[in-house]
């Protein structure tokens, strides 16, 4: 219930109007949204019970490792049941396959649709979505870890919350199924990071400083 309460209000996209090139405009709008989502995500992380008690080094490495996974949980959740298989990056930024392809994001589209279908088939509850998002952040394989015991405790508490929730609704297999969906999330986030790094490196799409810093940490 704490995670449900701290879930941030979805952001709206600010339409970029610096260029007449439609695809570039889409990309710039998307990257601006992503940068602002990151800011919100960092504020959100601090409110997850146990996160602020971690050392600064561990907080940084968890965020540097799990930020894209946590953000994509939101995109996949919002995109469920969309007509035309659009991806809902924001209420006012919905991209279909053709738009993504034109913007050079065909690979990202395919990966994110796959994740969205998976979540849709699992019929996730809002409680499961917020817990999955927090677990994506906690489940980093980042190395070295400053204080492994504290990170472990942070993970255990989220796991315990999920188990308690699933037991309360007599779903004995759900917690395991959700954990088993984390590899697909990691894989999707890796593809997303690659897509944005390529935009920056090969097509010279300018990125905001925070987004660039977080992408660089993954490069």
């Amino acid at each position: 219930s704490h995670l449900l309460l701290t879930e941030p209000t979805p952001l709206a996209a600010n339409q970029d109007d610096s260029t007449n090139d439609g695809s570039l405009r889409t990309l710039l709008t998307l990257c601006d949204l992503l940068n602002r989502e990151l800011l919100v995500l960092i504020g959100w992380a601090k409110q997850i019970p146990g996160f602020s008690g971690l050392s600064l080094v561990d907080q940084m490495s968890l965020l540097q490792s799990g930020w894209m996974e946590a953000l994509l949980v939101g995109v996949a959740w919002r995109s469920q049941g969309m007509p035309g298989e659009e991806l809902v990056f924001a209420g006012n930024l919905r991209l279909d396959e053709a738009q993504c392809r034109a913007a050079g994001l065909a690979d990202l589209y395919e990966a994110l649709r796959h994740l969205t279908s998976k979540y849709q088939a699992m019929n996730l509850t809002p409680e499961e979505v917020v817990t999955l998002k927090a677990m994506a952040l906690a489940n980093s394989d980042a190395d070295p870890v400053d204080c492994p015991d504290s990170v472990q405790r942070f993970q255990d508490e989220l796991h315990e919350a999920l188990q308690e929730y699933e037991l309360s609704r007599r779903e004995q297999h759900r917690a395991g199924r959700l954990l088993m969906s984390l590899p697909l999330l990691r894989q999707t986030a890796d593809r997303a990071v690659q897509a944005f790094l390529q935009l920056h490196r090969h097509r010279c799409v300018p990125l905001h400083k925070l987004l660039l810093e977080m992408l660089d940490a993954k490069a």
Binding site: L39, G43, Q47, Q59, M60, Q64, E213, D216
Partner: peptide, 15 residues
């Protein structure tokens, strides 16, 4: 740490 300046600053700021 210099490389991750913004994240470092954002985490140090109080909520």
């Amino acid at each position: 740490k210099e490389k991750h300046k913004i994240l470092h600053q954002l985490l140090q700021n109080s909520t």
